[in-house]
Measured scan of single mutants.
Amino acid sequence: MATGGRRGAAAAPLLVAVAALLLGAAGHLYPGEVCPGMDIRNNLTRLHELENCSVIEGHLQILLMFKTRPEDFRDLSFPKLIMITDYLLLFRVYGLESLKDLFPNLTVIRGSRLFFNYALVIFEMVHLKELGLYNLMNITRGSVRIEKNNELCYLATIDWSRILDSVEDNYIVLNKDDNEECGDICPGTAKGKTNCPATVINGQFVERCWTHSHCQKVCPTICKSHGCTAEGLCCHSECLGNCSQPDDPTKCVACRNFYLDGRCVETCPPPYYHFQDWRCVNFSFCQDLHHKCKNSRRQGCHQYVIHNNKCIPECPSGYTMNSSNLLCTPCLGPCPKVCHLLEGEKTIDSVTSAQELRGCTVINGSLIINIRGGNNLAAELEANLGLIEEISGYLKIRRSYALVSLSFFRKLRLIRGETLEIGNYSFYALDNQNLRQLWDWSKHNLTITQGKLFFHYNPKLCLSEIHKMEEVSGTKGRQERNDIALKTNGDQASCENELLKFSYIRTSFDKI
């Protein structure tokens, strides 16, 4: 039985969820670079991206490699990797027998973001014989899940209580170790020597080791999670996991709180800001991140802002960003909400898709409305799209047979046209069989910064309504002859009103 693990408890099935942008060198404390989270699957090609990484700022997932063999891993080693800020997950990587050479110096898994409450997941690794993470000293947050690894031993010899604050939620089941077939031998045991430290858990006094050649490092209890030197002297209180010299914040392997210019500090002093819960960055760093993602459509890219001495992905609820200094300031009234469309555009074809934009005031991208039916549609669209004030790209209304009016965009005031449909149009209306009105132009103002209007096959939309939009939106004169079809717009509506004058002759039985 794995020490510190839980057996036999019912657990939810383990679901495996399925960018080499360097964020800056980590400095003297770390020998390499800070790398983003990685999802490495199918083959070993991307694994080489770990070569210079000291910190993975995010998670590391290595999974679904069915053609790899043990010899493929023999020359692979990433000794610079010290810390993973989120979680480490391995799933069905064939041929991998140990992690001792792959990650010989991995010391800390912070667990800032977890995989279903777990910071370390080893699942269905069919050839893994031992973990071998002999320098792993601290899992700051989260638990361990090690399950269905039929060859995995050296679990009962690990004292997880020396690595985690609590072992109650560890789930370590259905491994070879369960069948008591392992016969784990710690260093020196074969020669009758006791080389590794022994600890007591559940009444068992057991030597602690990761492999037959690597003991588990056990520091004096007084050192807590700070770690200790090879001689057993406690590291500085700002260290986490390990250090090369005692009581020196510049000799830590990793930091308990924050890293700044080669030393570990309790908090980031001005003019620095907390970033990702582990390091200090200056304003320029946060500003660069903001600008890199301002026009990016890459998933996970955030326009970072500053709030409460932190550089964070977005302002919290009730705050909006001051564009001059990136500071989050309290909103006066309802907060603006910028919604970034991942692929640059979004099609609204149902109430469900409209709900995804609920509360958005600025759309960074283009909207395509293609709704053919739905219950209580006008009210639903207004509830979900009615706060949109600005669209950076274009607005396209296409084959939306259920629409009679666009009044559900009740606050839309600006279409920038930074991206144009077919390279020309910022407003595009095609084949809307029941569209009769755009907006009530006596109450609604709309500016279209650039781009043209396109109207074709809107049989109940009168040309007068379209011409009014040209005047109000500032697009009059931009359109070419064929942009607004004269014969297919309003051709099934009563669009022309003329005053009919009647004269009559009164007659009676005795007068003409």
Rank of each mutant, 00 (worst) to 15 (best):
H28S: 05
H28F: 07
L29I: 15
Y30D: 05
P31S: 09
P31K: 10
P31H: 12
P31Q: 13
G32D: 13
E33D: 04
E33H: 11
C35L: 00
P36R: 05
P36F: 03
M38A: 08
M38C: 02
I40T: 15
I40L: 12
R41T: 15
R41V: 15
N42L: 05
N42M: 06
N43C: 03
L44G: 04
L44V: 13
T45K: 12
R46I: 11
H48T: 08
E49T: 13
E49Q: 12
L50E: 00
L50A: 09
L50P: 00
N52T: 02
N52R: 06
C53V: 06
C53P: 00
S54R: 07
E57H: 14
L60V: 04
I62K: 00
L63E: 02
L63P: 00
L63Q: 15
L64V: 05
L64D: 15
M65L: 07
F66R: 00
T68S: 06
T68W: 10
T68F: 13
P70L: 12
P70K: 11
P70H: 06
P70S: 04
E71H: 04
D72T: 09
D72W: 15
F73K: 02
R74Y: 10
D75R: 03
D75F: 15
D75N: 15
D75E: 09
L76K: 15
F78K: 02
I82G: 06
I84C: 01
I84F: 00
T85F: 02
D86H: 15
Y87I: 00
L88H: 00
L89S: 02
L89R: 02
L90S: 01
L90C: 11
R92V: 04
V93R: 00
V93P: 00
Y94C: 06
L99C: 04
L99R: 00
K100G: 05
F103V: 03
N105A: 05
L106V: 03
T107I: 15
T107H: 04
T107V: 06
V108C: 03
R110I: 06
R113T: 11
L114W: 02
L114G: 01
N117P: 14
N117Y: 07
Y118H: 13
A119N: 01
A119W: 01
V121I: 03
I122G: 02
F123A: 15
E124L: 02
E124T: 06
M125P: 00
M125Y: 00
H127D: 06
K129T: 04
E130S: 08
L131V: 09
G132E: 01
G132D: 03
L133M: 06
L133E: 01
N135P: 04
N135I: 00
N135H: 07
N138P: 01
T140N: 05
G142M: 01
G142E: 00
S143L: 09
R145G: 02
I146K: 00
N149M: 01
N150T: 07
E151S: 06
E151K: 09
E151V: 12
L152Q: 03
L152R: 01
L155H: 15
A156V: 07
A156E: 06
T157L: 04
W160H: 01
W160P: 00
W160R: 15
S161W: 05
S161V: 13
S161F: 06
R162W: 15
I163G: 01
L164V: 15
L164Y: 14
D165P: 06
D165Q: 09
V167L: 05
V167D: 03
E168V: 15
E168I: 12
D169G: 09
I172S: 06
V173L: 11
K176D: 03
D178S: 05
D178V: 10
D178G: 11
N179S: 08
N179V: 14
E180I: 04
E180L: 12
E180G: 05
C182T: 03
G183N: 02
D184H: 05
D184L: 05
D184R: 14
D184K: 03
I185C: 15
C186P: 15
G188F: 09
G188H: 13
G188Y: 15
T189N: 05
K191C: 02
K191T: 08
T194S: 09
N195L: 09
P197K: 08
A198C: 12
T199R: 07
T199G: 13
T199Y: 05
T199C: 08
V200K: 02
V200G: 14
I201R: 09
I201Y: 11
G203T: 11
Q204Y: 10
R208V: 02
C209M: 02
T211L: 05
H212R: 11
H212K: 15
S213Y: 15
S213Q: 06
H214M: 13
C215N: 05
Q216P: 02
K217F: 12
K217E: 09
K217S: 12
K217R: 14
V218T: 08
V218H: 11
V218A: 11
C219N: 15
I222M: 07
K224G: 08
K224A: 07
S225D: 08
S225N: 11
H226R: 13
G227R: 02
C228R: 02
C228V: 05
T229L: 13
T229M: 12
T229N: 13
T229Q: 14
A230L: 05
C234W: 00
C234F: 01
C235S: 00
C235Q: 00
C235L: 01
C235V: 00
H236R: 01
H236Q: 04
S237K: 05
E238L: 05
E238V: 03
C239D: 00
N242E: 11
S244L: 13
Q245I: 15
Q245V: 12
D247F: 08
D247M: 04
D248E: 04
D248H: 08
T250Y: 09
K251R: 13
C255T: 00
C255K: 01
R256L: 08
R256P: 04
Y259P: 01
D261F: 04
D261P: 09
D261L: 10
G262A: 08
G262T: 05
G262I: 08
V265I: 07
E266V: 10
P269T: 11
P271S: 11
Y272M: 02
Y272W: 05
Y273E: 00
H274L: 04
F275R: 02
Q276P: 10
D277V: 06
R279V: 04
C280V: 01
F283T: 07
S284G: 05
S284E: 14
F285P: 01
F285T: 12
F285R: 02
C286Y: 04
C286S: 02
Q287L: 07
D288M: 12
L289W: 02
H290E: 02
H291V: 05
H291T: 01
C293A: 07
C293M: 00
N295D: 09
N295C: 04
R297Y: 02
R297H: 15
R298P: 06
G300H: 13
G300Y: 11
H302S: 11
Q303C: 13
Q303K: 03
Y304Q: 04
V305C: 08
I306G: 13
I306A: 02
K310L: 11
K310W: 14
P313Y: 02
P313W: 15
E314V: 05
E314K: 07
C315Q: 03
C315W: 02
C315F: 02
C315P: 04
G318F: 13
Y319W: 12
T320M: 09
T320G: 14
T320N: 10
M321L: 14
M321Y: 15
N322A: 13
S323D: 12
S323I: 10
S323T: 14
S324V: 14
S324N: 06
L327N: 08
C328Q: 02
T329E: 02
P330S: 05
C331W: 15
L332W: 13
G333C: 10
P334Q: 14
P334H: 02
P336E: 11
P336F: 06
P336C: 02
